Simulated scan of single mutants.
Amino acid sequence: MKIGIQGVKGSFHDLAASLYFHSEDYEIQPFGDFRSMAKSVSNKELDYAVMAIENTIAGSILPNYALMSEYDLEISGEVYCRIEMSFLVNHGVKIENINNVYSHPMALLQCADFLGQHPHIKLHEAEDTADSARMIKDNKMMDCAAIASHRAAEIFDLEVLEENIETNKENYTRFLILKGRMNGYDQIPEKASLSLVTNHEPGSLADTLMIFKNYRLNMTKIQSIPILGQPYMYSFNIDLVWDDYDNFQKAMNEIRQMSSSLRILGEYKRGNSPSQVETIPVLK
């Protein structure tokens, strides 16, 4: 089984893949950007892809919703990862030796308090946390550090000088497991993600929410997204969970009749909650 991830091995996408597919025999296919990965899934060059969709600090990654729609991808699962940052160096390097640190700009921002304690260290933005770790290892950069996962330290044989350096310890990212359409379902669905465009009438969204209530569907997320080419028109991305799948199906039948557009992005098994997140899995 071939799994696509954004970034290289040791990245947080790699971590998410290892958590979700831990009992499977799989091969990781790294990608430098989300678009090329989405295209490969659509072309059936991959069995699945792992794509970050929202973070408890940074919010939703809206361009990834657009890619899912553009390439007609289906959500088949989800996994939550706690984002723990480590300060990685080549073996033997001390904090006083470090003049530069490399990482993804979001990682640098999320470790601002720690970095503020070392104002002499110059910050350098990179495309990927794990690739920063690989770079300082391959180039034997003895005055440099990388901010990445503990998993990256194991993969690239780097020393963890400091761990858990992120400012906010309640930092979680939700990753979606994506596949091409028409591959069939492989799990009993407990959750769904929708893209909904309501009729342009007063109370249309409220009427939709009342249907959710009537059928005992719990809405775990709702977010409006601008519709390209239609100024000031919006679709709603909605996540729902339920106890009775028949209720979900009945609700969707009613909503289709009263909405301008309804697209089910995926029906899948509920992922682990943040309180159940495993942080450092065993390497495959």
Rank of each mutant, 00 (worst) to 15 (best):
M1H: 13
K2R: 14
G10P: 01
H13C: 15
A17G: 15
S18D: 02
Y20F: 08
Q29W: 01
Q29L: 04
D33R: 12
S40F: 04
N43A: 13
E45L: 15
D47T: 03
A49N: 07
M51S: 08
I53T: 06
I53K: 07
I53D: 08
I57Q: 11
P63W: 05
D72Y: 11
V79H: 12
Y80H: 12
F87R: 09
L88W: 05
G92D: 05
K94I: 13
E96Y: 12
N100Y: 13
N100Q: 15
L108T: 02
Q110N: 09
C111Y: 11
D113M: 07
D113E: 00
L115N: 01
G116H: 12
Q117C: 08
H120P: 08
H124S: 07
A126N: 04
A130T: 05
S132W: 01
D143T: 06
A145K: 10
H150F: 14
A153C: 11
A153V: 08
E154M: 09
F156E: 01
E166W: 10
N171P: 11
Y172L: 04
Y172A: 06
L176A: 02
K179G: 03
K179E: 05
G180P: 03
R181V: 03
S195F: 12
N199F: 03
P202H: 04
K213I: 03
M219K: 05
P226E: 00
I227S: 04
I227Y: 01
L228R: 11
G229V: 09
V241L: 03
V241G: 01
W242S: 13
D244P: 06
Q249I: 13
Q249L: 14
R256P: 01
S259E: 03
R270E: 15
G271Y: 11
G271K: 15
P274M: 12
T279P: 06
V282K: 14
V282N: 15
K284P: 06
